[in-house]
Simulated scan of single mutants.
Amino acid sequence: MKKAGFKDTNNDGYVDKDGKNLELKFVFFSPEQEYKAMVETVASGLRDIGIKVNIAAMEMASFDEVIFEKGNYDICLDGTGIFWGSSSTMLYDHFYSKSGLLGFHRLQDEQLDKLIEEGMELESRNEIKDAAVKYKAAQKRAIEELVFLCPVVFQKHIVVTKNNVKNCSPFPHSWMFYNGCTENILGEIKWED
Score class of each variant (00 low, 15 high):
R141G: 11
F177W: 08
H157K: 15
Q139Y: 09
R141M: 02
D113K: 01
V165H: 03
Q139K: 00
I158K: 14
E123D: 07
N126G: 01
E117V: 06
N167S: 12
A131W: 02
K162P: 04
W175P: 05
H173D: 10
N184G: 07
A138F: 01
E183P: 09
P151E: 04
L149E: 13
S124L: 00
E110P: 03
A131N: 08
A138K: 10
V153S: 14
A137H: 07
V160Y: 07
N164W: 07
K136C: 04
A142P: 00
P172S: 02
E144Q: 09
V153K: 09
P172K: 10
I128L: 10
Q139L: 04
G180H: 13
I158R: 13
L115K: 11
G180S: 07
R141I: 01
A142I: 01
E110K: 13
L149Q: 14
C150E: 14
L149V: 05
P172T: 11
L112M: 01
I116L: 12
N184W: 02
Y178M: 10
L115Q: 00
T161Y: 03
L122Y: 09
G180P: 08
V165D: 09
P151V: 02
L186E: 10
N167L: 04
K134E: 02
R141E: 06
C168I: 03
E145H: 02
I143R: 10
S124G: 07
N164F: 05
M176F: 07
K129A: 00
Q111Y: 04
V165R: 08
Q155G: 15
E118V: 01
